[in-house]
Design a protein around this nucleic acid. Structure first.
Lengths: 168, 168
DNA sequence: GGGAAGAATATGAATTGGCATGTTTTTGGC
DNA sequence: GCCAAAAACATGCCAATTCATATTCTTCCC
C-alpha cells in the first residue's frame, strides 16, 4: 500500500500537476462549489437561502420527515435545521407537528406556499442541471452520477463495515 | 429542451425515486460532504482546521501565491482567507511578504514548520484517497476525476459569461 | 505628472453555523 | 411499575463566515 501511495505521488509529478489538482476530495469540493454557486444565485433571487431551498426540496420528495432525518438528508446539523425550521415556519413555508405515536418526534410539513415555491425551484434546478449535462460528453453525466452514488453509498449507516464487493 | 426536462422528471418517477436522490448538485454535495468529513477528522486530529489544511496543501503545490489567487483555489472568500492567514502566521505556519513589483499584492509563503505539517497531511490524504478508490470499481475513480475536472473546467475564468447558449 | 479608475488586501459589523448541553419523552431491564 | 439509559429536539454560546466598506497601491489617460 505504501507503494501504491508512492505511485500516485509519482504520477502527479509526471503530469507536472501539483497534488491538489488531482486530489479526489478537492475535485469533489470544487465541482460542488462551482456548480452550486451558479444555481444558488437563482435560489437567493427567489428570496430563499440555500439551506431553506434544500429543505423544501427534501420535503417535496417526502413530506412530514422527522427533524433528525431531514437534517441528515439536507446535509446540515440537527441544531441548525431546528433554527431554520423556526424561521421557515414563521415565513409560512413549513409547519411543525409532533408525532402522535412518539411525542419526542417532530415532523415537518410543507404548507401550500412552501410546496409551490419548492416545485418552482425544483423546475429551475432541472433546467440548470440540464444546462450542465449538455456541456459534458454524452453519457458522462450518467457515469458521474453512478460514481457519486457509489461514493455516497460508502458512507451510509454501517456501510463502512462492508469494504468491497458486497451487493446488498 | 422543455421536453428534455420533462423526460428527466418522468425518469425520476419511473425509478420511484424523489428528485433529490438523482440530482447532480445534491450528489456532488453529498459525496464531497461525506468523504471529506471522514478525512477532516484526521486534519483536526493534527490541530488544524479545515481551511488551514487547504491552505497548506495549496501552498505546498505552489508557494508564494497571492491572497486572492489562493482564496479562489482554496475555495473560500478573500476576506476569510486573510483572517486565517493572520492566525496561521501567528502560529508560525506561514509568513506574509508583499510583492516587490506590486506592493498591493501580498504573497503567502510556507514556513518550514508549515511545509512539514503540510507534507505530513498530504501523505495522510493520499492514503485516505486510496482507501476510497479501493472501494470503488476498477477504473471508476479515474472516470470520476475526469468528469469532475470537466465540470470544474466549465467554471474557470470567463466560462460563467457563457451560461446557456450565449456565445460571447 | 496628477488625478480618476481600478486592483489587491484588510477590517468591522452582522449573520450563519457548530458544539455542548438541557429538556422532554420513550424504552428496557428488573 | 420504576429507574436508568437512550432517543429526539431545542437552546445558548461561541467560532466561523460573509458582506460591505476602508485602505493602500498601481495604471491609465489627458
Amino acid at each position: 500500500m505504501n507503494i501504491r501511495v508512492r505511485d500516485n505521488a509519482e504520477k502527479d509529478a509526471a503530469k507536472g500537476e501539483g497534488f491538489v489538482a488531482g486530489y479526489l476530495l478537492f475535485l469533489l469540493a470544487a465541482a460542488s462549489d462551482a456548480a452550486s454557486k451558479e444555481f444558488h444565485a437563482q435560489v437567493r433571487a427567489r428570496g430563499l437561502r440555500v439551506p431553506e431551498w434544500r429543505i423544501l426540496a427534501c420535503l417535496g420528495d417526502e413530506d412530514g420527515q422527522m427533524v433528525t432525518q431531514l437534517a441528515q438528508l439536507a446535509l446540515m446539523e440537527q441544531s441548525h435545521l431546528t433554527k431554520i425550521i423556526d424561521q421557515m415556519s414563521r415565513n409560512g413555508l413549513v409547519t411543525r407537528r409532533s408525532d402522535a405515536k412518539d411525542r419526542r418526534r417532530v415532523r415537518v410539513y410543507l404548507t401550500e406556499a412552501g410546496r409551490a415555491l419548492g416545485n418552482e425551484i425544483v423546475a429551475a434546478a432541472r433546467i440548470h442541471e440540464n444546462s450542465i449535462i449538455e456541456r459534458l460528453r454524452p453519457g458522462e453525466a450518467a457515469m458521474l452520477k453512478e460514481g457519486l452514488k457509489r461514493i455516497n453509498a460508502l458512507y451510509r449507516s454501517g456501510a463502512e463495515a462492508r469494504p468491497l464487493e458486497t451487493p446488498a
